[in-house]
Design a protein around this nucleic acid. Structure first.
Length: 400
DNA sequence: CCTCCACCGGAAAGCCGGGTCA
DNA sequence: TGACCCGGCTTTCCGGTGGAGG
């Protein structure tokens, strides 16, 4: 047994790796040059440039859908600016916070995280907000510098908390030459309006919009990353085009394209291939899709899971189209079995509509004339995924 | 052309948990 | 600390509807 597993590791180590620097496929990787974002890079650099002269730059709000390079560009500019500032001996620093990942949704959390980044640990809770405001204020004030605070996924911050406002305000109170500049990154277009009605200091704020990439642009970005990540000649022709095309038709999200490439590479490596071919991309796509569906099902509230379960079970006997009533009846039984309070049909109807939007089921409103009007409901997940989903649901719902 | 089924889907009110403010 | 507010979820109520069958 031991020798067998040893052997496995050995062959793995002996295997010639197809990678040069695998990290380049991660979405957090910041490449040396950024493609197709010259305008945005320039725009942001220009806004921040005054900090090199010790002037206070305007705040920035960046908008654009996911995976269009917002975070990468901002980090890139901030990093370059820091290097430049260091060479000029100008005090400058930036901190990067991801509001969603770090659960920054209140003023307190925001200030606490900033304090942490500045090297001062504060309790995660307990202190009054103004006490922590004071701490942050002191931290910034004691060493004169221009501090850029990058807040990614800023829409995760509850709008009622004046988190942004307190950062804007800090500027007015700072005394000895320190400045704070806020860069907000959001993929919710409505966010601008929400902010506008509240923090009125929009006068010193500039908006930057990131447009989506098209397939050609995705392709050249992928080529760049692939040339860093993989050994020479590992990519069979058409692989990159395929990844780019798939991602482009979905949303133009680079992250998605990179994922495809990464998973395809992993699949090829695991099989001991020396090259990555299109068939791995296809497989990667299925794999990612499957994971996505599994994740979505798992994330659903229990009630929705019971609805999915009902649809799966009913589909076994009548695969082409259930009526809302059928699903509701079965669902009610399921609820009784697992001791859950059933929702009304009205509500279940909405859940069905939601699951339709998610793409887990398809539900189309049709009229059967005299026999009423209902939704025609069927499963939208592929056949081979059903066992996996059933498994998840069994665990989540604890039915048998 | 009318009827009438079986549900759709909007409006509004109730409930609940979590956060805020005095 | 408790009153209060807010937003999300759910229920209640109800008018609306496409088209098979009469």
């Amino acid at each position: 047994m031991q020798s067998k597993i040893d052997e496995l590791f050995d062959t793995f180590l002996q295997q010639q790796t197809i990678y040069k620097e695998k990290d380049a496929l991660k979405c957090t990787y910041i490449p040396g040059t950024i493609h197709h974002r010259d305008g945005e890079v320039k725009q942001i650099a220009q806004i921040l440039a005054p900090s090199l002269r010790g002037e206070i730059p305007n705040n920035i709000l960046i908008n654009g859908s996911s995976g269009v390079g917002k975070t990468t560009v901002v980090k890139y500019v901030a990093k370059s600016l820091k290097t430049k500032a260091q060479s000029m001996n100008v005090p400058f620093d930036y901190i990067y916070l991801n509001c969603k990942l770090q659960k920054i949704n209140t003023q307190y959390r925001l200030l606490a995280n900033i304090a942490n980044e500045l090297g001062r640990t504060v309790p995660a809770t307990g202190l009054p907000t103004d006490a922590i405001y004071k701490i942050v204020y002191e931290l910034i004030n004691t060493r004169p510098t221009t501090l850029v605070v990058i807040l990614d996924e800023i829409d995760a911050m509850s709008e009622s908390s004046d988190g942004l406002y307190c950062l804007y305000r800090i500027n007015d109170e700072l005394a000895n030459g320190s400045k704070v500049c806020v860069i907000g990154i959001s993929n919710d277009i409505n966010f601008i309006e929400k902010i506008d009605t509240r923090a009125k200091s929009s006068s010193s704020r500039e908006d930057v919009i990131f447009p989506s990439y098209n397939a050609m642009q995705l392709k050249s970005i992928l080529e760049q990353r692939a040339s860093i990540a993989f050994q020479e000649g590992v990519m069979e022709p058409g692989v990159i085009e395929r990844c780019a095309a798939l991602a482009a038709q979905e949303s133009g999200d680079v992250r998605r394209a990179l994922d495809l490439l990464r998973v395809a590479g992993e699949l090829a490596e695991r099989k001991g291939f020396k090259k990555v071919s299109e068939s791995q991309v296809t497989e990667a796509e299925e794999r990612i899709e499957a994971d996505k569906v599994a994740e979505q099902v798992k994330d659903q509230p229990r009630q929705s899971q019971a609805v999915i379960w009902s649809v799966i079970k009913l589909s076994e006997t009548s695969p082409k189209g259930l009526a809302t009533g059928d699903v509701f009846d079965y669902y009610s039984d399921v609820c009784k079995k697992i001791n859950m309070k059933p929702l009304t049909q009205r509500r279940v109807s909405d859940l069905i509509a939601e699951l339709d939007i998610l793409g887990i089921i398809t539900a189309k409103v049709i009229s059967k004339g005299r026999y009423g009007r209902t939704r025609k409901i069927s499963l939208a997940i592929s056949q081979q995924m059903i066992p996996k989903v059933t498994n998840i649901l069994e665990q989540e719902l604890m039915v048998d």
